[in-house]
């Protein structure tokens, strides 16, 4: 029996002050990551992923590599969503600013 090697991660930022923990979970785990393979657009166009990783061996290190791929996917998806949230929030603030500025302009034009 081999010992389980389980990676963990912790994230903190101004938008997540209490922090967020990542664990690979129960699996199944694979070395083929969802967020690290080439895009579906390239695959559908007939492209081949020449950097496909080898399958995980049934060893402690092989399973660690697969768990690490799972946690990598979770982190990538989490941070991509954070980036989208930040972009939406910025767009909302820009829109709000624009509306307020235009409101001032509109008010000014009314006085003319």
């Amino acid at each position: 029996m081999t010992q389980d090697l389980v990676p963990t991660a912790h994230y903190e930022s101004p938008s997540e002050p209490k922090g967020y923990d990542f664990i690979p979970g129960d699996g199944p785990h694979s070395t083929i990551g969802e967020t690290t393979k080439i895009s579906d657009i390239v695959i559908n166009a007939g492209g081949q992923d020449r950097d496909t990783p080898s399958e995980a061996k049934d060893t402690a290190l092989g399973q660690l590599r697969a768990r690490l791929t799972t946690i990598q996917d979770k982190i990538n998806i989490f941070l991509t969503n954070k980036m989208k949230e930040e972009k939406s929030s910025k767009e909302l603030k820009d829109l709000e600013k624009k509306m307020l500025d235009e409101g001032v302009d509109e008010g000014s034009s009314d006085n003319e």
């Binding site: 991660a9 994230y11 690490l68 946690i71």
Partner: peptide, 12 residues
């Protein structure tokens, strides 16, 4: 540097 992430990777 307000965004922080740490990862712990155990080896044999």
């Amino acid at each position: 540097l307000s965004h922080r992430l740490s990862i712990s990777i155990p080896f044999e």
